[in-house]
Design a binder for these strands. Structure first.
Lengths: 253, 253
DNA sequence: CCAAAAGTGTTGGTAATACACCCATGT
DNA sequence: ACATGGGTGTATTACCAACACTTTTGG
């Protein structure tokens, strides 16, 4: 039995020119992920998630970060475990060609627009739009679907949208990230009120000028607040640290 | 490298007589989990989660259900993957006694009050209260804490509380499950309104009598509604079945 | 035996809050 | 044209109150 680690990497990328229907299409970024082309059986020639086997002395999260960096050159701003897939028949083995069984611990990651531009792409690594994927190797279509579902549900109650942006951003840009991920438009006024009330961002004194409209104030991420609530796993296992919160003593009812 | 599967099993159990402070304490059920006592190093004599190694041709979920049944005799009404733990040093190996590295895929399960009473307990298997656990083997304290956190967050947006109850129950009983899990009291009126609006339960024509008060109507679980939203993983991999909902056709923005 | 009390299920209201939707103004 | 701020009606929730129905208790 083999244990492998793979990662679904999301980024918002400016669309290729050739995929635009008309010149008038607004150049909205597209939710995309980098995939690698397999060069041997099974699934020779199919696109697959970046990943690799777990090495001797590294943790699962470390393995995800390493394999992701080795194949795509990317360093994610957010990395979280997604799910462990371990059906006996998922390795693509057939009666004619029985392969070894593989259990995959899959992670999902977000990279910023700026980082995504630095990705090492080529013949074997390419960005594909998340909503127009071809048939992938193994059960990777299911894995990507599940990662997409997690991203969309988590954006609504967490603060991970910042991971797509740089250090400074306007509320319009942050709102656009939410809209692209959720695939629906959000009310600018309510979005502003929510974000400001949540303390997730802090205003700066800078403004983004250049558009033919009123300059938009730039905000930055509030690092005093944890981006997501992971519960007891909040402290990464690589640096185990006793929780500062005392054990919940239950008063008798 | 070894791959093991373990399960955190939750049930609401009537408290032992000896743990009641006074005879007047209301006998509220207590959130508990069955643990097994280790009989060899490492962690000889410590309590640990039930589990075992993954067998050749079974899926991860199947392995969780099997090891859980073998050690405790329980069949859960709810079973879901929790997390994969794979830090290199978590197997309890020391410099004096280096053990093999173990990656654990951990599941969490809920069993009904009735099923919990049938559990095979003895010298090596015992129920312990979830909020008063001793030091457990390996990193199992962290694992239980995380499972507790998942249970508490999921009860609020999902319908898993029914898994603790039998086929028929009063709204009072369902509310008590929520209160015990969340450790706070809920408004009866609002709870009733929410549950009725959510279509999660269906009223029956039976009533629970016996108390010195007005009989309470019995409800049953609405099987037409999925208990939890697992997204694309909703169909269990053991019985792959096309989703009845058509694929979401995405309109271009 | 009957009436009152006790106790919980069930139902309804009110104030505060959050959100969807719309509009005004500034640059 | 878009950023920013404000305004209104609707839905949800916290909190409170009343009524319904059965068992128990006191005569």
């Amino acid at each position: 039995m083999q244990l492998a680690v793979s990662t679904v990497i999301f980024a918002l990328r400016d669309p290729d020119r050739r995929s635009a229907r008309t010149a008038l299409d607004a150049p909205h970024p597209v939710l995309s992920l980098p995939l690698v082309c397999r060069v041997r059986e099974p699934y020779d020639g199919f696109w697959a998630l970046p990943g690799g086997p777990l090495r001797g002395e590294e943790g699962l999260t470390d393995a995800a970060a390493r394999t992701l960096e080795e194949t795509t050159g990317l360093r994610p701003t957010y990395l979280e475990q997604l799910y462990a897939f371990g059906e006996p028949d998922r390795s693509g083995a057939t009666a004619a060609e029985p392969g070894e069984r593989v259990v995959s611990v899959v992670y999902w990651a977000l990279v910023s627009q700026h980082e995504a531009a630095r990705a090492r792409v080529g013949q074997n690594v390419r960005w594909l739009a998340a909503d127009q994927l071809p048939d992938l190797a193994f059960d990777h279509n299911l894995i990507v679907d599940y990662a997409l579902w997690r991203l969309r549900t988590k954006v609504e109650y967490s603060r991970i949208a910042h991971a797509f942006l740089g250090e400074h951003f306007t509320l319009r840009e942050l709102r656009e990230v939410h809209e692209l991920v959720l695939q629906r438009e959000l009310d600018p006024a309510n979005f502003r009120r929510q974000v400001e009330a949540s303390d997730a961002v802090v205003p700066t004194e800078s403004f983004r000028t250049g558009g033919r409209h009123r300059p938009a104030r730039l905000y930055r991420y509030n690092t005093a607040i944890a981006p997501v609530d992971l519960g007891p796993l909040a402290a990464p296992p690589t640096t185990p640290e006793p929780s500062p919160t005392p054990p919940a003593t239950r008063s008798s009812r």
